[in-house]
Design a protein around this nucleic acid. Structure first.
Length: 110
DNA sequence: GGCTTGACAGCAT
DNA sequence: CATGCTGCCAAGC
């Protein structure tokens, strides 16, 4: 295989791919960084996903707030409070500051 | 070219 | 249950 990881038919930057995946998350559901990473083709690129979301130009229509940690907690970053507020507003149930992934973990059909 | 940083995940202590 | 270290991927300097 000549292709390494990039330079393929759909040469979309990880940036665009990650955004696309995050946009696919239905309202009232959440996904973890590791899950999103796998959806874009990375096995352990959870950090890469964080990098992409952190680099978001302006969020636009990217529901970054639907992306949380694998523990069901929210990253300790400025705006985490708002993130939790948005999730709650969408119908996500929090349990002692933790999202109930058992009920809200979004499973993409790959 | 290589080192550092970053919205992480998983395992060991 | 809390803390620490390592592994992985990409961008910035």
């Amino acid at each position: 295989m000549a292709e390494s990881r990039s330079s393929s038919c759909a040469e979309r930057s990880l940036f665009a791919r990650i955004q696309a995946v995050v946009r696919r998350i239905p309202r009232g559901r959440v996904a973890t960084y590791g899950d999103v990473a796998r959806m874009v083709g990375l096995r352990n690129g959870a950090r890469t996903v964080g990098w992409a979301l952190a680099s978001l130009p302006g969020a636009r229509a990217t529901p970054w707030w639907r992306v949380i940690r694998s523990d069901g907690t929210i990253a300790p970053r400025p705006g985490a409070g708002e993130q939790r507020r948005r999730l709650v507003r969408e119908g996500v149930a929090f349990h002692d500051g933790t999202v109930d992934l058992t009920s809200h973990a979004w499973r993409s059909s790959r």
